[in-house]
Design a protein around this nucleic acid. Structure first.
Lengths: 189, 189
DNA sequence: GTATCCATGTAACCAGTTACATGATTGC
DNA sequence: GCAATCATGTAACTGGTTACATGGATAC
């Protein structure tokens, strides 16, 4: 089977919540879900065009005074069908490619201290991420309205994933740094 | 900056351990590091060719009786240089695209039970993965020789990453399933 | 005045995937 | 007899990235 255009489903999903322009879709990705999903204009615009041809979405031109042209897309019944069908299907797991782990595999060819430094930086990055996510969680849970929304447990799930993820990475960084140091000592004796 | 061919570095890394053929490289990826790195023939062979032109590797033809032709590649000094330079650089983080989380974001459009079923299956998959990794860890640590290798803490790190990863996902699946159920009940009252 | 936001799009590029082609050997 | 392993490669394709082009409005 050929590789599937995931951008199409991301767009369908975003438009299922609200009609919007290509720009709006990009904004939603950047502001709302960038820690697990990313899109860029160079792909969004051509895919939108193609989806219109496939009748998954419809376009309406919007001209506000003094502002640039806006093309607002809405999802069609056919689009809804395609979206829900995709949602019901188990997610495809794309073959992993974790550059950090690949580097570690061959890391014995560079000085230990360089590796430790890199791991330390990565740990700091995840500590910052974790703080952000925990802040987001607080805000999210303090909002009464969101908790009554049918989507509540799903939004929460994505956030919790990010939190778990950041935590395990911090732990793993610490553990790994310690293991490198201990091994260093062992070999010196 | 343009996107960088990571396959090149994977090949350099594999050949830094032992000279080998394209087939050997693929085998190493599949057997040894497939849970965090994947390559396929359709990319390996052309990249090998290009790397030979760049003088990062050299080729020797090997003809064993009755067996198909083998082309064994070795890393050159220039290749070593490029490899270590890359290793010293902090890893690029490619923009995330986690299909599962994207689906959860829009999951309120399909029946809860479908989502729960999917999450249950994913949990089972990670339980199996975890068992495998823990088995691998035992074998790995029981081997005296590997512990004296300079690469020991790095190999261990990749394995420990996989273990941490599987564990957090199992936990997260359980948590999420429970949250969906509780929310379901709450809305029914 | 300068940076950011709003807004749309195209063209060139490339990394990586899939399918196809070939054929001997080994193990069950 | 059949599947898997060994072994190399090409061609077609496509999903996604980057760079380029344009230009007004708003906020500091």
């Amino acid at each position: 089977m050929p590789k599937i255009n995931k951008t199409k489903y991301a767009i369908l999903g975003v438009l299922s919540m609200n009609p919007g322009s290509g720009y709006d879709i990009k904004k939603f990705c950047d502001k709302g879900i960038s820690y697990f999903w990313n899109e860029n204009f160079g792909h969004i615009y051509p895919v939108l065009k193609q989806m219109e041809v496939e009748e998954l979405i419809t376009k309406i031109a919007e001209q506000n005074e003094g502002k640039p042209m806006r093309y607002v897309y809405s999802i069609t019944p056919k689009g809804w069908e395609e979206l829900t069908e995709w949602l019901m299907q188990p997610p495809e797991n794309t073959p992993a490619r974790l550059e950090l782990l690949l580097k570690l595999t061959f890391a014995k060819n560079i000085p230990e201290n360089n590796v430790i430094e890199q791991m330390e930086k990565i740990k700091q990055k995840h500590i910052q991420r974790l703080e952000q996510y925990e802040e987001m969680e607080k805000e999210f849970n303090s909002n009464e309205k969101t908790r009554l929304d049918r989507g509540y447990p799903y939004w929460l799930a994505t956030l919790r994933y990010a939190i778990h993820d950041a935590r395990f990475r911090i732990q793993w960084c610490e553990e790994t740094i310690q293991n490198i140091r201990e091994h260093q000592k062992m070999l010196n004796n």
